[in-house]
Design a protein around this nucleic acid. Structure first.
Length: 276
DNA sequence: CATATGTCCTGAGAGC
DNA sequence: TGCTCTCAGGACATAT
């Protein structure tokens, strides 16, 4: 599931496409229910064909292509979406393609479940989107002070709030559990119960876990869905301490098994000895 | 306003 | 073996 580290890895892998000019784009023939592409493929084609790709960047868990015209094309991978500049894992789930003038580079949007979205913005639409969208600060740019100021007032459990993109952007279900393990904080703790030093610890854990995961090019889970732009697996799954490790011995304390609970209809994993 | 729940989707795996 | 059922969770819409 692409969260911040996986999306960051995609963005880094797509940098060779920078400065190329779009030759064509469109839906890939796919017998499945079409994914959401807005406003329409025809409109996107009219706006973007012939435009030069200025930058490929990350906005929380989205990939943003910015063009010389100020237009942006935004990809939300959500659960199973991938952006690829190589041959896809299977052609069955290809959803969208871009070709570039005089360049051999490929660009595919591949999505097994089809929950991902593609949205085009003009420059003014983008400015409106960025001001109306209540997106919290990027998790990689967080400080202990800003984290505490934003999250402490909530009465919800810390794990649930870490996943709320309006409070802090980029953390999903997998990394929320790993971060709280690193911070030795029980995921059920209400935000208002954390003290200054604990917010500092959580802040440090956010940066450490996410940077470590980026260094390992993200997590490819047992379903094998996530891959980088070159269709290669990440390796951070081998470093997981709690996620999907229920009933396995805690790697840190070696005293007890990892526990799985459900919070807001999401699986949470933690060590009842290490995390208090 | 803050918080909770329902919705979309496919394929792996469990259970019979 | 082959069917049916449950589950996984991103973001958003709707409900409380």
């Amino acid at each position: 599931m692409p969260e911040l580290p996986e999306v960051e890895t995609m963005v880094r892998g797509l940098q060779p496409l920078r400065n190329l000019t779009i030759e064509s784009l469109g839906r890939y023939r796919c017998s499945r229910k079409p994914i959401s592409i807005r406003p329409t493929v025809a409109t996107i084609r009219r706006r973007l064909v012939g435009r030069q790709l200025l930058s490929i960047s990350r906005l929380a868990k989205r990939v943003v292509l910015e063009f010389s015209s100020g237009d942006r094309l935004v990809f939300e991978p959500r659960m199973t979406g991938l952006l690829l500049s190589s041959d896809p894992p299977t052609t069955a789930h290809l959803r969208f393609f871009i070709t570039f003038l005089g360049a051999p580079h490929q660009f595919w949007f591949w999505d097994r479940r089809g929950l991902g979205t593609i949205t085009a913005f003009s420059n003014s639409q983008w400015q409106l989107f960025m001001t109306s969208k209540k997106l919290g600060p990027d998790a990689l740019a967080i400080t202990a002070d800003s984290l505490q100021t934003r999250l402490q007032p909530s009465r919800r459990p810390i794990k649930v709030v870490l996943m709320d993109q309006q409070y802090i952007a980029g953390i999903g279900n997998l990394y929320a559990s790993e971060i709280l393990f690193r911070a030795n904080i029980d995921p059920r703790r209400q935000c208002e119960s954390l003290g200054n030093e604990e917010w500092q610890t959580v802040s440090n854990a956010i940066i450490e876990v996410l940077q470590d995961a980026i260094a390992h090019e993200g997590s490819t889970l047992s379903d094998g869905t996530y891959r980088n732009a070159l269709n290669q697996n990440g390796s951070y799954q081998n470093q997981h301490c709690v996620y999907a490790r229920s009933d396995k011995r805690c790697r840190e304390c070696q005293q007890t098994d990892i526990v799985r609970i459900v919070q807001n209809q999401r699986a949470t994993f933690y060590c009842p000895v290490c995390q208090v």
